Computed example of a mutant assay.
Amino acid sequence: MRRGLGRWARRIGLTLLVLVVLLFAASGAYLGWDRLRPVRLDVAAPGFDVDAAGVRTHVEHWPAAQPSGRPPLVLVHGFAESTYVWSRVAPLLAADRDVYAYDVRGFGFTDRVPPYDLAADTDQLGGVLAALHLERPVVVGHSSGVAIALSWALRAPASISGVIAANGDGTPYFGADRTSAGGGARWVLVDPIAPAAVTAVVRHRAPIRSIVAAQCGPGCPTDDAAIDRWRAPFLLPGGVDAMVTVLRSPLIGLTDAQESTVAVPTAIVYSSEDGSFGRPEATAMAARLRTDLVTELPGARHLALLGDPERFAAALRPGLDAFGGR
């Protein structure tokens, strides 16, 4: 009996070893094929570039339709996003003030310059503000972009008028330990499997369409042109490698204690159907930031800024009015 079990264990072990070897070989072959036949999308990147703390950074600008003297807005996107996520809501926000959005290092049409950590991302935001010569703007962060916005608020509170946290609380999303900056889940993804998996996702529209639809809801554009706008930056040379490096890095974020020391005015916007940041997280964050400017978007999801831009813009209004009204 024991001898038979030993034989089966050896067979299972050998089978698993063969499968692992085949997976590595298939991943390497797929990457080789991708290098021979890369996908490149002819997608225009509206906007311009600035040097932000040594990083060539892509910026988009929506001039105020009716200038009012209100502070400008600087929009900071989240993980695996780009300025595209603001493309539907930014024109609405620009009704009475200048609006700027930029691609965080490693994403969009900005250079891929490591390290991909909160300190470097904060440096970049400060570089954007300096390059654009913006006077005390309001910074709106989405998802993990909230961490960057609040990190700058801690570093240079006098340089901004306020921070609006949308669909994110500025702390790592995963893991029980909220006492260590940059903690949370850390994915160890080996070569060549990780690059092959990311390449397989971004080469094809279907996976991206599925992810966007799930996070955005029925109001989100999911036609081929919209999905290609998502995919194009990742298909640029170095795009996949940067994404894999970001995935292997600790999630950016402040600790609860750090958030509690933020002194600039803040406001919070959350979506009721957002699985990563809902009412409990928004309530706890409001207590840490000592703010009562909390707005819910009923029925909306994580990418409400793209799927429901009119309501998202309206949800930002209490904070915008409080941080430099007429």
Results as ranks from 00 to 15, higher is better:
Gly141Glu: 08
Asp177Ala: 01
Gly184Lys: 07
Glu135Tyr: 07
Thr110Leu: 05
Ala147Glu: 10
Gly126Asp: 01
Gly69Leu: 12
Asp103Ile: 09
Leu75Tyr: 10
Tyr102Cys: 08
Asp117Phe: 03
Ala131Pro: 11
Tyr116His: 05
Gly78Gln: 03
Trp86Arg: 03
Pro67Ala: 14
Gln124Phe: 04
Ile148Trp: 06
Leu125Lys: 01
Val85Asn: 10
Pro91Thr: 10
His133Lys: 15
Ala65Leu: 13
Val128Glu: 09
Val74Gln: 07
Tyr173Asp: 12
Gly54Glu: 07
Val113Cys: 00
Gly69Trp: 12
Ser143Gln: 02
Ala158Ile: 00
Glu60Lys: 12
Gln66Asp: 14
His77Phe: 04
Gln124Gly: 02
Trp62Cys: 07
Leu92His: 06
Trp86Ile: 03
Pro137Glu: 06
Val188His: 14
Gly170Asp: 09
Val113Gln: 14
Val74Tyr: 09
Arg112Gln: 12
Leu75Gln: 11
Tyr84Cys: 00
Thr83Gly: 11
Val138Gly: 07
Arg56Glu: 08
Gly170Ser: 10
Glu81Cys: 13
Asp111Lys: 05
Pro72Thr: 01
Arg97Tyr: 11
Gly168Glu: 11
Ser68Leu: 08
Ala156Met: 08
Leu154Asp: 08
Gly106Trp: 02
Ala181Val: 02
Pro67Gln: 07
Asp96Ala: 13
Pro63Tyr: 06
His133Arg: 15
Arg88Lys: 13
Val140Gly: 09
Pro72Lys: 00
Ser143Val: 01
Trp187Ala: 12
Ala158Thr: 13
Asn167Met: 14
Val74Lys: 09
Ala185Glu: 14
Ala176Asn: 12
Ile160Pro: 04
Ala165Cys: 15
Ala53Gly: 06
Ser159Trp: 00
Pro115Cys: 06
Ala181Gln: 14
Thr171Trp: 01
Leu129Lys: 05
Glu60Phe: 00
Ala153Met: 08
Ala94Lys: 03
Thr122Trp: 03
Phe174Thr: 15
Leu154Arg: 13
Thr83Cys: 10
Trp187Leu: 15
Gly126Glu: 03
Ser159Gly: 05
Gly126Leu: 02
Asp177Ile: 07
Ser159His: 12
Leu129Glu: 02
Ala119Val: 14
Ser151Cys: 04
Arg178Thr: 15
Asp121Cys: 05
Pro115Leu: 04
Arg105Tyr: 01
